[in-house]
Simulated scan of single mutants.
Amino acid sequence: MNFQSPVLHSIENGIARLVLNRPDDGNAISLAFCSAFAEAVEQIARAELRCIVISANGPRFCSGGDIGEFVENRERLPEHIGAMLELLNPAMKKLATLPVPVVSVVHGSAGGAGIALACCADFVLASEKVRVRGGYSAIGLTPDIGASYYVAQRIGAAKAKRMFILNETFDAQQCLAMGLFDQLHAPEELAGAAETLVRTLACGATAAYGLVKQLCDGAASRDVETHLDIEGAALLASTRSEDAREGVQAFIDKRAPEFKGR
């Protein structure tokens, strides 16, 4: 692991960890950050995974785009941001479609594209001290890397427009009430709570979890007849898994199952 990289990654016992690592700059997203993030996602996508964790070093989770870098490139801003999106968008798509649970641990404030990095996860755990602000339209820009998608999916279009047009700041309790966050914890308890969830997920029937993700993520875009067909096919596929056989045998044996994610 290169600790100088703006994004760190590691894999141990099937748990992949992505760590935003520009602590002195609010983990702002620069072109170098985009390259490191894309490479990290590519590396973990090749591994045998059970769960993915997204977290950050420093006092903030992610402040969004690196405005200083935008200023430096203001004469060629479309080209500069286009280069960033060419790296980040494929990485975000790959992260979203990996068939394992993703957990984000939001210990500090999130803004702009940092909201996408927090809310692309299946489970969003946050500190009670966190604040969230869209910020894009304050500098004449629109959301990117899925921020508008994930926020609208979680809290609805009306509240998403409040976040990204009015640039209202939402505190942690408001985010929890709206559904942007799944759990809140005291700052000193957040890491432990996240680790408990991650290890629970990693020991679970992760082959089935991947199918559940596909079903739930695609449900809104399908009619019920189509969804029932896809859901039925997923169930039949899961019945053929090693995890299903182990789960049934463990039920018969009256013991805890030992899932392998296969």
Rank of each mutant, 00 (worst) to 15 (best):
N57Y: 04
L141I: 00
A126V: 03
Y136V: 00
C62H: 02
M92P: 06
E128P: 01
D66C: 10
R131A: 10
G156A: 10
F70L: 14
A91G: 08
C51K: 04
E72I: 03
A28W: 00
A32I: 09
R50F: 07
S127Y: 08
T97Y: 05
F61K: 01
I52T: 09
H107T: 10
G112N: 11
A40M: 07
A36L: 09
G64F: 04
S35V: 12
G114L: 06
P59F: 11
M84C: 12
F33A: 01
E72K: 15
V105H: 03
V103R: 01
A47W: 07
M92A: 08
F61T: 03
G156T: 06
G140P: 08
V124A: 03
A113C: 13
G146I: 02
E39M: 08
E39R: 07
R131W: 12
I29H: 01
R154G: 10
V102M: 09
L141S: 13
V124S: 04
R46W: 05
A40S: 15
M92D: 05
K159G: 01
A40H: 06
V53G: 03
F37D: 02
G68P: 01
L88M: 15
I81V: 14
A96W: 00
I67H: 07
A28T: 05
E39W: 02
I115R: 02
V41R: 03
V130A: 08
